[in-house]
Amino acid sequence: MGGFLSMGGHGAYIWPAYGIAVAALGGLLIWSLRARAKVQRELQDRGLDRRARERR
């Protein structure tokens, strides 16, 4: 396990490179999901969501 983490002595470069990918893309994913949930809630509150329009 120590060998895996040290990555042949280059762990200090490899793990941050993966870290930025996970942080930036994971962060964007969470932000996007929350933004969608918020908009859907507002649409529902005003009766503007798809199901409400289809009922009309």
Binding site: H10, Y13, P16, A17, I20, A21, L25, G27, L28
Partner: peptide
């Protein structure tokens, strides 16, 4: 999304360039 991808490219490249 494009901005995030470009950022990941730049920063990960930097971590490769150093060693």
């Amino acid at each position: 999304v494009g901005a995030a991808y470009a950022l990941v490219c730049l920063v990960s490249g930097s971590f490769w360039g150093r060693p």
